[in-house]
Every structure is written in C-alpha cells, then in structure tokens.
Design a binder for these strands. Structure first.
Length: 878
RNA sequence: GGGCGGUUAGCUCAGCUGGCUAGAGCGCCUCGUUUACACCGAGGAGGCCGGGGGUUCGACUCCCUCACCGCCCACCA
C-alpha cells in the first residue's frame, strides 16, 4: 500500500457548506426518522438490485423463505441481520451481491392457521368449500406476504426485491412439477401402500421428520391369547389394545426358549376369534414385556416390517379420521379409537383375558403442526427413493464442498443421511403443489409438467390428475435454484448459482438444508451453497420458547421502534453465532442504542468545531500533517481494529467484530481520543479534526454491515462527497499507521490517568482539597495530555522531551489527606503480584519445560514489578 | 436408547489453537449540572470458571467421570 498521509482540507473546504448540517444535529440520535429516510433512498438508488452482467465476482444468498403463516419473529430478525451483514460486507469488498427474498406457502402450516381462524369464526373449510377456501388462502398470502417483506425492510435488509419469489408463483410451481417429473423419470419416485405417520385431524400423511415425539404415561396391558388345540396361552403386552382387532400374528424371538415350542402353531385372538400364526422374528425383544408380541402390520411400523418378512395380511382397522374400521365387529365399528380402547379393555377383563396392567412411560408421536396424536396407518403414498441422493450428499460433504459454521452441524446432516429412509412426499391436503401425475382410464400412470391431452401409452383422453399434494419441504428444497429461474436456463441461474451462503436455524437442518443439498446436486450438478451458517435460537427473556401462543413472543418491530434497527441488529449479530440458545436481552440491545447515540454525538462534536487553519501545527494543506501523540495512537488502534473486524467476519465470528468496534468506538475513540483531542478540536486544529474525521470515516465503513442506518447517516454528514456506503471500499489496514511504540506509550499514559483518578476518588480530597504532582520525566506533550485527561494541575517542570513515558517513571505524589492508605494498597497489590511471579520463576520445572518466550516474559514482569516497588518504597517526595 | 451443546460476576453472555491481574453489557455502591452525549462521564464492589479425578512446569481452556439444563436423531410393542 501507498504511504499514508493525512489529508488536510483546504481552508475553503471543510466546514463550508456543512455548518448547517452540523448545527442541525439534535443532541440525541432518533432512529426512526433516520431509518425510514435511508430505506427509501437505498431503494430509490436501486442499490440492492443485482446485475448478472457485472464483471465483479458474485456473491449470492437465497433468503430462507419465511413461512407465510404469520409475521416475523426474533429468530427471523436475527437471521436477517446476519445475512444482511454478509451481503453488505461483500458489496464493500467488491462483489456483485444478490440477496434474493421470498416467502414459502407452507402448505400444512398455513392450512392449519386458516383452519384455526375458521374454527374461531365457528365454521370449517369443508363448510366453506374449496373455492372460497382458496380465495381465503390467496388473500392471506398477499397480506401476510406483504407484512413480512415490510418487516424485512424495517430491519434494513438489503434484499433485491425486484426478484421477490413465492413458492406458489406460476413459475415456481413449474419448477416443482419439473423436479417431480425429473425424479419420476429417474425411477426414484414411486407410489405404494406403506405404513406412514397419519394425522387423523389433518387427515394427511406426514414425513418422519414432522413427528413431534412426546413422553406419555400410559398403561401397558398384558393380554393372554389362547393357543389353538390345547389349554396353553401366550401372553402379549401392548399399550394400544384397540389395535389387537387388526392383529395378524403373534411373534416371538427365534432364540427364545420359552416360546420355541409354540412357533408354527396358532393363537386365537380374543374378542375376535381370528387364528393368528405364531411366528419367530429377530425384531422381537425377549426382554420387553413377556417376550411375545402381537403383530399388527396395519398399525405399527415395526409390525409392518415383520409382516412384510412373513407375508402376513395387513388388516386396516382404522379410518382416516381415527375411528375404528372393523365392520365385522359392530360393537367397535366406527367408534373413536380411544373409546374402543376402553371397551376392549373392559371386554378382555370380562373374558378373563386381561392378565395384568402396569404403568408405562414411552414416546408418542404427535403432528408437529396441530399436536394431534399420530396413528401409524397403511395408505397409498408417494415416496422419493433416498439411497442415491443420500450417497451423493454424503460424498459432497466428504469432498469438502460445503462448510458448516459451526462445523459440528455437519454431523447432524451426515448422521441423518446415513440412516435415512425413503421420503414420504405426498400429503392429503387442500393446500399445496399438486403432484403432477396422471392416470388414464386404462390404468396407465405417468408424470408430466403440463397436463397432456391424452395418455402417452394408450391415447385415452380421459385423464385423472393425482389429488395428493406435495410435502411443502419438497418445494423448499428447490429454493436456491428455482428462485433463479430453473428449469429455464436463465442468466441469473448461470451467474448466481451456486449461492455462497445459507443461514438457518438448526431446527431445520434436515428438513430443509439437507434436502436443498441433494436437490441441488441432482438437478444442478452442484451444491446449492458453499457455506452454511447455523445461528442460535432466540429464546424469551425467561428462557422459554418465544411463541405467540405462550405470550412470550417479542415483535421485532416493537424492539426496533424503541431502540432502533441498528441496535437490534448489532445485538443479533453479536449473539447470533453463539453455541447455545440465547435469551432475548433488552439491556444489551439498549446498550447498542447507547452506542449509536454515542457515535452520533461524537460526530456532532467533531463536526461542530469550526476549523481554523491558522492554528495548524502542520505546514499546511496537502502536506504531511504533524500528528499529536493521541492522533498517532488512535490511528494505530484503528488499523488494529480494521484487522480484527475483517478477521471476525471472514472467520464466521462476527461477534468478535462487533465487540472490537464497540470497544474501539466507545472507549478508545470517545473516552480517550476525543477527550484528549477535544481542546484541539475546539481550537480548530485541522490536524485533530482531520484525524477524527479519518477515524470516523473508517469506523463507519467497518460498522456499516452491522449498523447500516446510523453509519450511513453519519457518513453522509462527514465533509466531502459521499457515496452510499455499500458502494464504498472496505477498509484495508495501513501498515504505515501502525505504531506499536506509541500504543505502548499511550497505554501507560492511560494507566497513569486512571491511577490519578482512582487516587483522587479514594483520597476523597477532590479537586479543591489537594494537588497532584507529576514527575519530571514527562514530555510537555504527555504532561499536557495527562493534565487534561485526569483534570489535574501540573506542578513542576516537564522534563526532557526525549524521554518516553512509562508507568512508574511518572512520579505521583498523593494528596496529604490519605496518602498512606492509598500508597500501601498499591504496594500490597504489587507485592502480591511479585510473589506469584517469583514463585513461578523459582519452579525448576517451569524454567526447563516452558517455552523460552514465556519464561522471558515472566522475568520481564518480575523486573518491572521490582522496579516499581523500589520506586514506591523510595517514596520520592517532591 | 444414541449423538451434540451448555453449566464463567446478582442477571444475560464473551473468553479462538492451554501461558500477562478471567472480560463486556445491565444491575448495584460512591462521586460528577467540565460547552458531544444523563441513551452521559469518573471511580468501585462483586467470580475456589457446575462437582470430582487426571494429563501438564502451568487448565476456564485438553482427557475421564458424575450431576443438572437444552436440542437433534431413534420402529422395543
């Protein structure tokens, strides 16, 4: 990099024309006014509209499409803040950025929300009819969809809204159908009767991942089945006695000596009288219950598999609404399962077939959308074969084509893929993407994106389209490329796929992220993104789930209204990559509002000082400036912060960037630099002013990805022509400005000032009660700085200007009121410290084993402490 | 049942590959109407880093183990 020089504005530039703006700055930062202004200006300037023809390297993110089930919550805001910080950062590092927004129709979830709404109004979707319900859906989508986009705008999300997508848009629907047909033609999409998780309320199948397991305390019933041709019995254990009506067999473990003689014989099903073969199967656990299992292939996944192995008949004993379907048993037929359970138990008891019961705790599956207890049920469903897709995904991972942040989540994905089963993609809902399969009158079946006029096999024109719809995640899985125009070969698709980043909550790693990966690999031949960020889950302040129904939800708009979008964003970015769940912490958000206000006022201070070039210590405009020690210090610190911020972002640890900026901006710049340079600024010293402006300039750039509004506002108030920050280059550290000597000196100066302040406070002498003397080794410059910062009167002569200041060299005499106490406390602290270090150094093992630089460091520390103690003991008085 | 994460100041959280006196914000105490900021400034109190073992010259950091909290995965009825 070129040698750096501080630009001194000519006397004509600088304040001219900016005076009014400065004077116009209120004493407090008012976020809402500033935010809406910039949102509008950014949009008007079309800053976030991506250009696929740009020669710049691209960077793309597909916004995880929020479900159109309701408004955005704190988790969305957090994720939005993280992605936006990346998008803005990448623009500043010279990338053509596409951050593409959209929403997800969320079939089952939305249908549930609407059904609940209808229920509150005392009606049902059936009463309403399909068409009226569809209208309701469209209305809902447009109103909620608009709210969501508005919320993202308020957050400051730099989305390309010209490319807004919705999973129910015609073009997207086409992509979904094309994808289905693609799998179908590959032979991986098949239909068949299988046992699935059935929700009797939604009246639909759901996938394994949509099962919400809850612990239930139930009763385990022991029922004895008589053995045919004798007076023996076999006793089975079950928690769902009502399903025995659909039993096909009794199974025991082949190695179980207790039952070996029964295998091959038959048991008689109580209450029903059906003959059940007694079979041997490895899946039966000898330890559980009695070691004998009633086999009900129609109503239990394990039994279903046993049934398949042994060719057992599948008896479907239940209707889709959860009532029993046993026409041969009129006593139970048509009744709800729960009632039948009681009836069956009572009947068994009467027959003497119920041996005993015991309490039993186990996991019961619920529908994760409506909470209803699921029934394993056999029905005709569509499945996507997962074997090859899983293998492709695992391979991509092993090749290191996707990087997870934090890394450990890669295992979540791999573990799931390694044990994966075929994906049940069909749903029996009103809402969703219709499965693009057609059946002709002659029993032929085929898949097609567009409804064909006739059956391609027999020419029959009477075609029936499949009524099932697709799992909503099937369409979500196509998001990174379907949003770019796939299956058309669009310019966007060619330019922006694969995307670079996906940021998501860990709860949908397998539901969504994994499925995007295999979909991308299959249809596009490449991973859908290079990096995956899994952000923290935001909890309510009390640690509970944030949820509207619990009353623990916090609307991001409320937070933004009170503290500003920047404050919410800074907090979200600072906690978003935490390894654990994070509680909503208003006090910290508030502190970032304070930070924004601090920057506002610091800028106000810097800009309010009228510039008087004649005061300049330097030779004049255009020449290298003569920097004060404080100037050199803050510029050196600025370089360090620039490095830290960049490293934080690039290392997927943006919290480090935020911490560094907060510490630097508030404490180093405002508390120390501005306090030190205040007098010079007020005097109109152009060097101080140019330095301060230089720092603010860089600080605003560095902070812009995290706090876009305040930085944009203040940046534009700085002198000179100012483009939008996303079009301004990301700062690079300037080595020439790094000055470790001045940093060490200034650090010592800070310590001295702190000692003086503490002494004064402890001495309780106050400014009026005593005077402080500072030793003769200080330079005039340091002496002046200390005097100003510590607000002490400097007495005595400042000594040789050549001597650097170091703590311990400056002699400080304490006020007469309480010198002994204060001094002995300092003495005691140093003595204890020295003792510890000497103990360490006295340890032979330490000297032999520890690295040389560590030992040297400790020795240096000891020497320093001894010197300091010596000086204090000596007690040089003025 | 398997896996992962967490347990650090009163509260919410940082602490990267083991090494200066373990940090921040809020809260608390004391002081301050200094012309950027009370959405402020200065000073301060407060932590056997969940328990126990181990490795190491040295452990908040690595290993083992226990306890509790949370999440994900899982076909023992």
């Amino acid at each position: 990099p070129q040698a750096w020089s501080l630009h001194l504005p000519s006397s004509d530039a600088g304040m001219n024309g900016k005076d009014d703006q400065t004077a116009g700055m209120a004493a407090a930062f008012d976020p809402p006014a500033v935010e809406s202004n910039w949102s509008r200006r950014w949009e008007e300037a079309r800053l976030f509209v991506a250009d696929p023809d740009s020669p710049k390297p691209k960077f793309s993110i597909a916004l995880p499409p929020p479900n159109v089930t309701g408004e955005l919550h704190m988790g969305h805001a957090t994720n939005g803040a993280i992605q936006d910080a990346w998008a803005r950062y990448r623009r500043m590092t010279g990338h053509e950025v596409l951050w593409l927004p959209g929403t997800d129709h969320a079939a089952i979830a939305t249908q549930n929300v609407l059904e609940k709404q209808l229920a509150r109004e005392g009606t049902t979707k059936e009463a309403l009819g399909r068409d009226a319900f569809d209208e309701l859906v469209v209305e809902w989508y447009s109103s909620v969809g608009a709210t969501i986009i508005a919320q993202l705008r308020v957050l400051g999300a730099s989305l390309d809204t010209t490319r807004l997508r919705f999973t129910m848009d015609a073009q997207y629907v086409r992509a979904v159908r094309t994808a289905f047909v693609g799998y179908y033609e590959k032979g991986w999409m098949y239909r068949g009767p299988r046992i699935v998780n059935w929700c009797p309320r939604c009246q639909s199948a759901i996938s394994d991942l949509e099962v919400d397991w809850q612990t239930h305390l139930d009763t385990l019933y022991f029922v004895r089945y008589p053995i045919e041709g004798g007076d023996e019995f076999v006793t089975i254990a079950t928690v769902r006695p009502e399903t025995m009506l659909a039993d096909s067999a009794v199974a025991v473990n082949p190695g179980d000596e207790r039952y070996r003689h029964l295998v091959g014989r038959h048991a008689i099903l109580p209450l029903v009288g059906r003959r059940l073969p007694i079979i041997a199967d490895e899946a039966v656990e000898t330890q559980f219950g009695t070691g004998a299992l009633k086999v009900t292939p129609g109503h239990d996944p394990l039994d279903y598999e046993i049934g398949e192995r042994h060719g057992l008949p599948i008896i479907n004993g239940m209707n889709p609404n959860g009532s029993m379907n046993v026409p041969d048993l009129p006593r139970y037929h048509g009744l709800p399962a729960a009632e039948v359970r009681n009836l069956v138990v009572a009947d068994l008891e009467r027959e003497g077939a119920l041996v005993r019961t015991e309490p039993y705790s186990h996991e019961v599956g619920h529908c994760d959308r409506c909470g209803t207890v699921l029934e394993p049920l056999v029905s005709e469903q569509w499945f996507l074969r997962m074997k090859e897709l899983a293998a492709m995904s695992i391979q991509a991972s092993e090749q290191g084509r996707i990087h997870w942040h934090p890394e450990r989540y890669e295992r979540t994905y791999l573990d799931w893929l390694r044990g994966i089963r075929d994906w049940c993609v069909s749903r029996q809902l009103w809402l969703g993407h219709r499965i693009p399969v057609f059946y002709c009158a002659n029993g032929h079946q085929f898949a097609a994106v567009d409804a064909p006029p006739a059956c391609p096999q027999c020419g029959a024109t009477e075609l029936r389209e499949e009524t099932d719809v697709l799992d909503t995640w099937f369409s979500s899985a196509l998001w990174p490329f379907a949003t770019l125009g796939w299956p058309e070969k669009t310019v966007d698709l060619a330019h922006f796929y694969p995307t670079d980043l996906n940021s998501t909550d860990r709860g949908i790693i397998n539901l969504w992220v994994t499925r995007m990966i295999f979909s991308g690999l299959f249809f596009m031949g490449d991973v859908p993104f290079r990096d995956v960020i899994i952000h923290a889950t935001i909890q309510a302040a009390d640690g509970r789930r944030m949820s509207k129904s619990l009353g623990t939800g916090v609307d991001p708009r409320d937070t933004i209204a009170r503290f500003g979008a920047d404050a919410l964003r800074a907090w979200a970015v600072a906690v978003g990559m935490s390894s654990q769940d994070v509680r909503y912490d208003e006090s910290r958000i508030k502190s970032f509002r304070g930070f924004a206000n601090k920057l506002w006022n610091a800028t106000r201070l810097v800009l309010s000082a009228a510039e008087r070039p004649e005061v300049s210590a330097g030779p004049g405009p255009g020449s290298p400036a003569k920097l004060d020690m404080a100037d050199r210090w803050i510029l050196s610190r600025l370089q360090a912060v620039t490095r830290q911020v960049t490293e934080g972002i690039e290392g997927y640890a943006m919290q480090r960037s935020v911490d560094a900026l907060y510490e630097f901006g508030w404490h180093e710049f405002c508390d120390w630099y501005l306090e030190a340079a205040k007098a010079r600024l007020r005097d109109g010293d152009p060097v101080a002013r140019a330095t301060a402006i230089q720092v603010l300039d860089t600080l605003f750039r560095l902070l812009h990805p995290v706090m876009p509004f305040i930085t944009e506002e203040l940046w534009h108030r700085l002198p000179g022509d100012r483009d939008f920050l996303v079009r301004v280059a990301w700062p690079q550290p300037v080595d020439a400005l790094t000055d470790s000597a001045v940093e060490a000196e200034f650090a010592a100066l800070i310590r001295l000032v702190e000692e003086i302040r503490a002494a004064r406070q402890a001495g309780r002498t106050g400014a009026a009660g005593g005077r402080l003397w500072v030793g003769e080794v200080m330079t005039p410059e340091t002496s002046r700085l200390v005097a100003g910062l510590a607000r002490v009167e400097m007495v005595g002569e400042a000594g040789s200007a050549a001597q650097p200041l170091a703590w311990g060299e400056a002699r400080l005499e304490l006020p007469a009121a309480a010198p002994a106490g204060v001094r002995s406390a300092e003495l005691g602290r140093l003595e204890a410290e020295l003792e510890k270090v000497e103990l360490k150094l006295g340890n032979a093992a330490f000297r032999e084993r520890a690295p040389a630089e560590i030992v040297a460091k400790e020795e240096g520390k000891a020497a320093e402490l001894r010197a300091a103690l010596g000086r204090i003991r000596e007690g040089r008085a003025p």
